[in-house]
């Protein structure tokens, strides 16, 4: 069976075949054979050519956080464009930009007003988290189309702070 994932914005496709306790994973031009045991709701044990590898998976909506050999992979189900289409995400639309906070936090200050002209790298807002203030800078030159938040608002890392429109 074929699976499509996205890792750091890059699409990854694998084919997984299963025979009893063995799986055959086709990734690119390589095939990897492993014996698998389910340890718990979060853990798989793989034996690859006699080498033992514990893999831990935690889910968060369409994202899977996968840990193995001391390393963490953030894997999203499906393809990036596909998900954006499903979400009705217009971030990809040309000349328009939705600015989001890089982490969850509290809006300390909004430094611009709607219809303001902004330069690239101009500070648009300040979001504070864990005693650290972070300046949110403009990714483009243009003007402020819409502001979604005001000082004191709590935001998560996906909530739009404001929308910009590029100078034409």
């Amino acid at each position: 069976m074929e699976y499509e994932f996205t890792l750091n914005g890059v699409p990854k496709t694998i084919m997984v075949e299963r025979k009893d306790e063995r799986i055959f994973v086709h990734h690119g031009d390589k095939t990897l054979e492993a014996e698998v045991r389910v340890i718990s709701a979060n853990a798989f044990s793989f034996l690859v050519g006699g080498r033992s590898c514990l893999v831990i998976v935690a889910r968060d909506k369409d994202k899977k956080h996968v840990w193995l050999n001391g390393r963490t992979y953030l894997i999203q189900s499906g393809r990036e464009e596909q998900r954006q289409a499903e979400r009705g995400d217009d971030r990809a639309q040309k000349g328009k930009s939705v600015v989001t906070a890089p982490m969850p936090g509290k809006v300390v200050k909004v430094c611009v007003a709607e219809k303001d002209a902004v330069r690239k790298n101009q500070t648009l807002a300040i979001v504070e988290a864990m005693k650290m203030e972070n300046e949110i800078k403009s990714p483009l030159e243009g003007f402020v189309k819409k502001i979604h938040v005001s000082a004191g608002d709590l935001v998560d890392s996906e909530k739009p702070l404001l929308e910009l429109e590029a100078k034409t």
Binding site: M1, Y3, F5, L7, K12, I14, V16, I23, V25, H27, K30, L32, A34, V36, F44, F46, V48, C53, V55, V57, R59, K64, V66, L68, N69, R71, Y73, I75, S77
Partner: peptide
Amino acid sequence: EWLTLALAAAALD
């Protein structure tokens, strides 16, 4: 190879 295993685990999941 680790990435392949991570993706395989995501698929099994």
